[in-house]
Design a protein around this nucleic acid. Structure first.
Length: 483
DNA sequence: CTAGGGTTAG
């Protein structure tokens, strides 16, 4: 009896440590328990399996499974559900299917969560048809779908750009009186924002408020990001204020969200305040939090502080490298940035697209011939490029009046399927047209016979910067063309 | 135990 009670106590302790992402501490509690004769049970192991799946990965969770079996305990549905959820998160479709089969083989019966997780994995792995088949087999197994089932469905529809269908499903659930929870609302609001339907998203937010349900941090940060996305800055900041007013607790996710938005808006003091608060509130900062923190240091020009932070950690990811490369470029340390990027090839397995784009973007902004040439050299050695790469290069070339070169690169990019903003395309084409014109004019007429007024008014009609929708700074200095 | 929200380049 005493053993049972102490195991339950240990489980509560392990669970709360896992919730706080402190798996190591949880493991120590279990080890101490065993030493003191308090044996872990299925719940203990399941808690650990779930934590490893969530915080590390399925493979790490398998080692717990192993220990569990060694202790003579059999995994149950909960164990399998966590593992399937973990493989869904890692898009490990074959693994999740194996787990499902194994579950059936050992004589366990799947529950709603099993089906939900499997369906989720199929959706995430790009197999919507199979996912829907799982939904149907769930029905034939006489298992009633939960709100999570529909949330997964709605989420998938949103991710595939079918927010309209997601909304339809949402309305259907409303009509038949199926309970929709906060996650349903949050998922759909986010999906609507991402498909550009600002008004509908905002109406849904009001509907949520009207339904008497209390929004959470997720709702507010989703609204905030959605507002910024559609350039409604005031409303976005209002949402930020609402998080505090509603008494929502910020977690690491919310902090990083808010801080990155503030940095992008140039509200550096506010961003710094939130970083301080994050450090005070979140305890041990995870990788993303630290990246956010380092990013702020670099954006503030505090290179040394950023590098100090960097030295304190041993796990670096692609984001960290990008942030660092960007920070170096902002301080004109291009060679350092380039060397770092090159060292990535040997140390990391991440894509170097963003770091390359950072360097090229910064070089092109300089408007110097030698910088531009360096940028072109980098461009030629990139194995993967995207519209950022092209936009930076074309911008830089136009700035230097190298329109023909820009045009050729643009056409090569277009042939490769790169989608460029129309403003960039127009800048190149107008520049090319104008420089040809200029060459022509120079050949035809003697300088003395030129009528300045005429030339000016004629060219203005075809000038890219006469377009009010166009950002003048993106095209470069018109003086370059005029001379 | 599951579903939803986080970090980089313009």
């Amino acid at each position: 009896m005493t053993r049972r009670v102490s195991t339950r106590l240990m489980n509560i302790c392990v669970a709360s440590l896992c919730r706080a992402r402190r798996v190591d501490a949880a493991e120590r509690v279990v080890a101490d328990g065993i030493r003191l004769g308090c044996l872990p049970d299925v719940v203990t192991y399941n808690t650990l399996v779930a934590a490893y799946c969530r915080l590390v990965g399925v493979d790490a969770a398998y080692s717990v499974l192993h220990r569990m079996r060694e202790a003579g305990l059999h995994p149950n549905v909960v164990t399998y559900n966590s593992l399937i959820a973990g493989s869904a998160r890692g898009r490990r479709l074959p693994l999740s299917l194996d787990l499902f089969e194994e579950l059936l083989r050992v004589g366990l019966s799947p529950d709603v969560w099993t089906y939900n997780n499997l369906m989720h994995c199929l959706f995430r792995s790009g197999c919507p048809d199979h996912a829907l088949r799982v939904l149907m087999s769930m029905e034939s197994a006489n298992l009633a779908p939960s709100s999570a089932t529909y949330n997964i469905l709605i989420n998938d529809l949103c991710k595939r750009g079918a927010a309209r269908d997601a909304l339809r499903l949402f309305r259907y659930l409303e009509r038949v009186g199926f309970p929709r929870d906060l996650v349903t609302f949050n998922t759909l609001i986010d999906g609507l924002f991402k498909s550009g339907r600002f008004g509908t998203a905002r109406r849904l937010f009001w509907e949520l408020l009207g339904s008497g349900r209390a929004p959470n941090v997720v709702t507010y940060t989703t609204m905030m990001k959605g507002c910024f996305r559609s350039r409604r800055f005031e409303e976005g900041l209002t949402m930020l204020g609402e998080i505090r007013r509603a008494g929502c607790r910020f977690d690491a996710f919310a902090y990083c969200n808010v801080i990155s938005v503030l940095i992008k808006m140039g509200k550096m003091e506010a961003a710094s305040d939130f970083v301080e608060e994050m450090i005070a509130q979140c305890g041990v900062l995870d990788r993303v939090c630290r990246n956010t923190q380092i990013n702020l240091c670099f954006k503030l020009g505090k290179m040394d502080d950023g590098l100090d932070l960097l030295n304190q950690v041993d796990e670096i990811d692609g984001y960290t490298v990008s942030i660092l490369v960007d920070g170096l470029c902002r301080n004109n340390r291009f060679l350092g940035a380039y060397n770092l990027l090159k060292s990535m090839a040997t140390t990391g397995t991440w894509s170097n697209l963003v770091p390359y784009n950072c360097i090229i973007g910064a070089l092109c902004k300089q408007g110097k011939v030698e910088s531009m040439n360096f940028a072109m050299m980098l461009f030629s050695e990139m194995e993967r490029t995207d519209s950022f790469t092209y936009a930076s290069l074309l911008h830089g070339l136009c700035k230097l009046g190298r329109f023909l070169e820009a045009f050729r690169i643009m056409m090569a990019g277009v042939r490769k399927g790169v989608r460029l903003p129309t403003s960039v395309q127009r800048a190149v084409l107008t520049g090319l047209r104008l420089s040809r014109h200029k060459l022509h004019a120079r050949k035809l007429s003697a300088p003395s016979s030129q009528v300045p007024g005429k030339a000016g008014s004629e060219s203005r009609s075809g000038l890219a910067w006469a377009d009010p929708n166009l950002d003048r700074d993106r095209i470069g200095d018109p003086a370059v063309l005029r001379d």
